[in-house]
Design a protein around this nucleic acid. Structure first.
Lengths: 230, 230
DNA sequence: TTGGCAAAATATGTATACATCTCTATGTTA
DNA sequence: TAACATAGAGATGTATACATATTTTGCCAA
C-alpha cells in the first residue's frame, strides 16, 4: 500500500481540476487564506499546492498582491497543436505490422465511435463522449508506436488546451461525423501501412474545431492572452 | 525596475545550476536544514525552491525520508531527442525565403564554427565553445520559422539531457568536424529551400555523440535510470 | 477640484515550533 | 539464530506568528 497522500496533494488536485474545467475562471482571484479555510488546513499546504500549480502555469502569484488563475495562453495552444500534428504523423509511421489483437483494438475504437454517433444522444453528451473516445484513439496510436510518453507531453491534459476545449463546449454533429471519417482514414492507413496521404489527414484533423477560435476568443476576451495569428 | 527577487528564487537558481552541471550528483542527498543554513535562511524558502525543482523533475522528495537529486532519465532523453529530430525537420520546412540579413546571419554562425575549429584550442575548450555555437545555430533556425517557443520546450536546457551532455564532457575534434559538415548541409538546404535530403541530415545529426552512450551509462551506472534501447 | 503623500488594509514571503512519517538499530522472543 | 516488535533518530509535513510588498484609501495642500 502506498502512503496516504499529503493534504497539499489533495488541494493541488482539487484546484487543478477546478481550473481545468473552468469552475475557477481565467483571471479570477484565488486566496491562500480562504483556500486554507475551505480545506481546513493552514496556509502552508495551500502554498505548496499553489507553488506546484504556479510552476505548471495554472496560476500566477504576485507577491504582496494576490494569486490569480492564469489566462488561457493562445500561443501555447498554437505550439501544442503544431507539435501534435508533426509528432503524431511521425509516430504513426513508426508503427510496424500490427498483430491481430492490435488491429481489432483499433477497429473496436472506431466502431464505438460509430455507435455513439448512431445513438440518439443530446448534442452535449454526444460531444463529450465522442471527445473521450477521440483521446483514447490517439493515445492508442502513440502506445502502438512505443511513444506513449511523448503523447503525455502533448496531450489534452495540458491546461491551456483543455480549457479552450471546455470553452468550445461542444462540436456539432456534422463536425463529429467528419472527425469520425478522418479517424477511419487514419486507422486504415495504419493497418495497411499506407502513408501516402497521412500528412494531409492530420493537417485537417488536428485543427478541426479550431475554425471558430476567433469567435470564441472575441466572445470571452477577458479569458485570453496572446496573439491570434491566422 | 522589477522587484528584487525572493530568496527562494536565488536558492532555486543556484541549486538548479549545481544539478545541471553535476556539482550535485544524481542520487545525491540534499537536505532542507543544511541548505537553509548554507543560504542563511529558514526552511521555508528552501522548501519553496525545492518544490519548484521537484515539479521540474530535478529532485525527488520522499516524505519523512529525504530529498535526492533525481537520476538522469534515459527514457526522457530518448523522447526529447526524438522530438528534436522530428520537430526541427518540420520547422526547417516552414522557413520561407530568407532576407539577405537572415542569410548572412546563418553564414556568420557557420564561419564562426569554422574559425573555432581552425584555432588551436585545447579539446575541452573547443568542445565547450563549439556546442555553444551549435545551440545558437539551432535556436536561430527555430527563430527564423517563428517557432522559438517550441525550441524552448525541447532544447538543451532540459535537465536530463544537459547532464548527459556534461557527463560526455567533450566531443572529439573528428566528431566536431562532422557536426560542422552537417551544419553546412543544413544551412545550404535552408538557403536554397531544397529539402530533398534534410530528413537524413537530421537523423544523423541529432543522434551524433550518442554513439558512446552505452559506454557512458555503464561507466556511471549509479547516475542513471531507465532502459537503454538500441 | 485635483494632485500627492502617507497610513491602513490585505496579500504573499519568511521564521520557527511542533507533528508526522520513514528508516534503522537494537533488543526480545520463539 | 532468525524473525519480529519497538523505540529512537532524523527527515519532511503542517500550523502559526511575524515581516515585507503592493494596492487602496483618505487626508491635506496647492
Amino acid at each position: 500500500m502506498r502512503g496516504k497522500d499529503k493534504s497539499s496533494d489533495r488541494i493541488y488536485r482539487t484546484i487543478k481540476k477546478e481550473i481545468m474545467f473552468l469552475e475557477l475562471l481565467p483571471g479570477q482571484r484565488v486566496n491562500e487564506v480562504e483556500t486554507a479555510e475551505r480545506f481546513n488546513v493552514s496556509r502552508t499546504p495551500v502554498r505548496d499546492a499553489f507553488k506546484r500549480l504556479e510552476v505548471e502555469g495554472l496560476i500566477e502569484v504576485r507577491r504582496g498582491n494576490g494569486t490569480f488563475v492564469s489566462l488561457i495562453d493562445i500561443d501555447e495552444i498554437d505550439d501544442i497543436m503544431y507539435m501534435r500534428e508533426k509528432l503524431e504523423v511521425a509516430v504513426v509511421k513508426e508503427i510496424g505490422t500490427l498483430s491481430k489483437s492490435q488491429e481489432i483494438k483499433l477497429e473496436l475504437l472506431l466502431s464505438e465511435q460509430r455507435e455513439l454517433l448512431d445513438n440518439h444522444l443530446d448534442d452535449f453528451t454526444l460531444s463529450k463522449k465522442f471527445l473521450e473516445l477521440d483521446n483514447e484513439l490517439h493515445e492508442t496510436i502513440f502506445t502502438l508506436a512505443n511513444k506513449i510518453n511523448i503523447w503525455k507531453r502533448i496531450s489534452n491534459d495540458r491546461p491551456h488546451y483543455n480549457r479552450l476545449r471546455v470553452l468550445t463546449n461542444l462540436y456539432s454533429r456534422e463536425e463529429l461525423e467528419k472527425l469520425y471519417e478522418e479517424h477511419s482514414k487514419i486507422v486504415r492507413s495504419i493497418i495497411n501501412r499506407d502513408y501516402a496521404h497521412i500528412n494531409d489527414y492530420y493537417k485537417k484533423h488536428i485543427y478541426r474545431g479550431m475554425n471558430n477560435l476567433t469567435e470564441i476568443v472575441s466572445k470571452h476576451k477577458e479569458y485570453f492572452i496572446g496573439e491570434l495569428v491566422e
